[in-house]
Nucleic acid binder design. Structure first.
Lengths: 339, 339
DNA sequence: CACATTTCCAAAAACGTTTTCGGAAACGCG
DNA sequence: CGCGTTTCCGAAAACGTTTTTGGAAATGTG
């Protein structure tokens, strides 16, 4: 079996408390005994039991990534993975214990955020995938445990948010389309009341108004962010408003852009020759589609890293809860043609 | 703060042991007191601290997914995510506590598998991403904790392996190409000595020999499973052996297929009209490329689910360690043309 | 009714750590 | 040398559970 602190203590001829002090680099121990204990520990291949450590210790070095709806949507694999990579990167660099938990709307009602933290003895979490109707909104706000949400504004004393300036980013994306000469632009939108939808819509409108452009009601196509919906809805749009002279589709996500392109191709059009299309998110598929999709990269891995960073600082009392707005970048590829 | 078992005991007027018995549905407690305790617990919103539970309890209900090299390669996001989804699915259905750990070749030397399990009090793990030179090979074999590897044969009393019949699958894929009339087929291969490469090579050769086909040395293109390598190597191949009359590229992974298609397009060829290409893995990008790529789907999510399942059964003593071969399926799409 | 058995529960040990408390030894200073 | 500090470390409490042990009460049996 694996050696415990008791075994090390016995072997080194000291008490367990002393071994603990040696292992944790405390001050009230002589250099000589520390050396000796460390040596013995190494020889015995001793590793502290993190569970016991976590139970006993006052301040926990464990954080978590909480993914809501992970098991439900098949779409955004990249997003979650890249986010986690960022978080894990930070955790490893700072020797934090990190784990991942999956929740959904149902489990959110059964167990508060604070309870989840308590159950697993974690100091805080980076939370991704919350819908704005989710019970966790209240749960987080009321919680004493710090947390960092991604792309969703919660409020509360202990909750930070890491996001991009989606309004500005979408404005920029729209402006790019306009700069390429597009004047009649259809908007492929996400769920009507989702926070991200609202922000991106605002960005689009800002750019259009600034350039004296109109966005007729019939030109906005609503979906639930699902590729297949974009596919069928755009197909319908082409049938109904094909003669309206639209030259470009401004999509609120990359998956919607992919669906849009599929619909266009199916209807016999070429992208970008007949219609231009842009996406939003910067998931890696956009590099491999035909044509490669012009999009806004959210740098999701950095977001994960910075979220973990901020969480850590909140836990350690280095930084207070705050909102962090990370830079985005317009990625120009092949799905837009100058007209 | 959150209620502990002590608080519940006090509130219900019983001892902590009794509360524990009530919560865990043990037999030696009267139905009446159980009811009462459960009620009190519910009212107080009591949730057992899983860390304490895990420390105290003899048999742990925690399993883990261990990802090796997670932070290194940017390529196979899908793979890991889908695998995890499968594992988490099983865990949630069976009320297991599941967590995820990231290791790499370096951390493998520092800490054995058994130590990692001990540190986190986990009963066993599903392990993905091991390279055949990794230190964990020995570590797993010597370990007392059960584990399930994915796609990699380790050996040892407590280690199972969940995989596909890659030889048969690649044979099938090759046969499909042959059935479509292709006789001169180039092979875009992965790392020379990797287990998966060897198996897939064998499958390809089986099909070719059976059909009386040859595979000249110059027609096998080696890569490290990286898309960009496929891109450049195939480009080189076209320059050097463009006149050899090759009509199809048999790729050992989907990413290689994507790279191959890019190279072909860059060189002015159309897929599948000028050259046919097939991939292997079934990652979701292949559905969105142009053309959509014909491939072999490994059903990675099922693999995750079954791996967790087998792990659980090993822990509970229901099934012994064993190798599980899951079905694959040929997914015919648009990247192959009949010649 | 006496005794054996069963049912139920309280008390306490155990899990492997950290942390607090207190005291012995070493040291410094007059 | 005596006394106050400081340095170092052992003992024990604490973290929140589960599990073992033992015994009182309830039940069954003759």
């Amino acid at each position: 079996m694996t050696a415990t602190i008791q075994d090390v203590a016995r072997a080194a001829g000291v008490s367990v408390g002393t071994v603990s002090r040696a292992m944790n680099d405390y001050s009230d121990i002589s250099a000589k005994t520390r050396e000796r204990i460390l040596e013995v520990a190494k020889e015995m291949n001793y590793r502290p039991n993190l569970v016991a450590k976590s139970l006993s210790s006052k301040h926990s070095r464990s954080i978590a990534v909480i993914l809501s709806g992970f098991l439900e949507d098949v779409m955004f694999n990249d997003f979650e993975t890249m986010l986690m990579k960022g978080c894990y990167q930070f955790a490893i660099e700072h020797d934090l214990d990190i784990s991942m938990y999956v929740i959904n709307t149902k489990t959110q009602t059964e167990k508060s955020y604070e309870q989840l933290c308590y159950e697993h003895n974690i100091a805080g979490a980076v939370i991704f995938g919350l819908k704005n109707t989710d019970p966790y909104f209240k749960s987080l706000e009321e919680s004493n445990k710090p947390c960092v949400t991604i792309d969703v504004e919660v409020g509360g004393e202990n909750v930070s948010n890491v996001t991009n300036d989606h309004v500005a980013a979408f404005d920029e994306l729209t402006q790019y389309l306009i700069d390429q000469g597009h004047k009649r632009i259809a908007l492929v939108s996400g769920r009507k009341n989702a926070a991200v939808t609202v922000q991106r819509f605002e960005g689009a409108m800002n750019a259009m108004k600034r350039n004296g452009l109109e966005l007729p009601k019939e030109w906005v196509i609503y979906t639930n962010f699902l590729k297949d919906e974009a596919d069928s809805e755009v197909e319908k749009f082409l049938k109904e408003h094909g003669e309206a002279g639209v030259t470009a589709f401004l999509c609120m996500s990359d998956m919607l852009a992919i669906g849009t392109i599929e619909a266009l191709k199916k209807s016999g059009y070429r992208v970008p020759d007949d219609y231009s299309v842009v996406g939003y998110d910067g998931i890696y598929v956009t590099e491999h589609t035909d044509p490669k999709i012009t999009t806004v990269d959210q740098n999701i891995k950095d977001k994960g890293y910075e979220a973990a960073h901020l969480l850590y600082d909140m836990i350690e009392g280095i930084r207070p809860a705050q909102d962090l707005i990370l830079p985005h970048s317009l990625v120009i590829r092949d799905s837009v043609k100058k007209v």
